[in-house]
Design a protein around this nucleic acid. Structure first.
Lengths: 228, 228
DNA sequence: AGTATCTTTGGAATGACGTTCCATTCCAGT
DNA sequence: ACTGGAATGGAACGTCATTCCAAAGATACT
């Protein structure tokens, strides 16, 4: 064998897995969950399906890669102040994911899939690890570490997803305020005897701050964890 | 108008929306999420697509109806003992949904969709209402009622979904024990410095009781709620 | 420089799917 | 019997992910 002079320098800048993933994200953001098709992808990249399949195994892997990229970015945004308490870090992580899901609503379904179908994968492990370390720092005993962490993670992702949906509204032309108003009104008009909860909550549904309420939920769970 | 002797007795027992939904559920349970196709449906029901579309608007509505039916059944199973505390009722509701998702794993994705895309719909409202009433009975102040309830609901559905996935394993031929063992081993072999949480938790992941841990999470959140 | 080899490309073809169309059958009320 | 609407099922359509393949490009070796 000869001396290896160089290892396959990309001959052309045209196509790469990275560029494909970027385009996929853009497509998903622009056209919604169903907007990612190989047809749209080939048109945007001015190529054929074969070229794309050479860099990506299938659509599922492509969606996974897109999710990985965004989640990694979101989790990388750390304040990391030396004075930050575990609570602060958890809130920061939660808000990072909140914003990511808000910007890319299709992440909700993707994360839910990843969480339940492959808890060992990079994304799920990253999230659990990030939150779990702080829960540990919070002083949670080892026995309840996993329980407490999964409670937090499920709330963080679930509530963020619900909020992202609210922020967009049903269709594309309905504003958030109109949307929430519609739901609140519907809940308010339910029979108070049969649906006392919906009736009571309708008011605060109409005018509330998303992030504030989101963080309040996290604090609620944190209280449950730190309580002896 | 004439005397109503009988109101449209179905001329044939052959087709009805109910029968279609039943078959859809069976198909989903048997063949998994992707098992529900109109081809399979028409074969099982010995009919054509047109007949089905006469009773059901589209596949989405069919999936929604299937979800509705199962969730309603799950929520209807109430102990309703007079001595039951709100905590007891919440645990019962949670276990009802746990079992439903365990029996019909495809519910996970469906519920996640319903929760975020149409929180006003029957299913989501039913779940929120059911849990919310008990949270109210727990003495939670009105301001934190929605926050506390959504924390519970998100945990209940998220953790149940994750558990259902674990119970099945990756493929169909891998047992739960093998599956958990694989994941636990993978987590255990991660760098303890970079992934201390995964490393610590791996052991209890290997041998734990699903329901016990699930209920422990609920109790954790309940503690956070009842704490002044 | 020339040739062989491996990678990358893009267009055509495939098969599965959801959905629509339409000619027909069935039944209730006349 | 007659009829109008409901119900039916088969054929057809358009879209999608995926596979196949032949051509082109780039590199390695002589």
């Amino acid at each position: 064998m000869a001396t290896q002079t160089h290892r396959t320098p990309r001959r052309t800048e045209a196509l790469s897995r990275e560029r494909i993933v970027e385009t996929a994200v853009d497509l998903l953001d622009t056209a919604g969950e169903g907007g990612l098709t190989f047809k749209a992808l080939t048109e945007r990249l001015a190529t054929g399906p074969g070229a794309i399949y050479h860099h990506v195994a299938n659509k599922e892997e492509l969606l996974g890669a897109a999710t990985d990229a965004l989640v990694t970015t979101a989790l990388a945004t750390e304040p990391a102040e030396p004075s930050a308490t575990p609570q602060d870090v958890i809130r920061a992580v939660a808000l990072g994911l909140f914003d990511a899901i808000d910007e890319h609503p299709w992440l909700t379904a993707q994360l839910s899939k990843k969480l339940s179908h492959s808890p060992w994968g990079t994304v799920a492990a990253q999230i659990f690890e990030r939150v779990g370390q702080q829960v540990h720092a919070l002083g949670a005993p080892d026995e309840s570490l996993f329980t407490a962490t999964s409670a937090l993670v499920h709330y963080i992702l679930g509530a963020a997803g619900q909020n992202a949906a609210n922020a967009r509204g049903v269709g594309a032309h309905v504003s958030r305020a109109e949307f929430l108003d519609t739901v609140a009104t519907a809940w308010q008009e339910l029979d108070p005897d049969e649906y006392p909860f919906a009736h009571t909550v309708a008011r605060q549904l109409r005018d509330h701050d998303d992030r504030e309420q989101y963080l309040a939920g996290i604090d609620l769970i944190l209280r449950g964890i730190t309580r002896d």
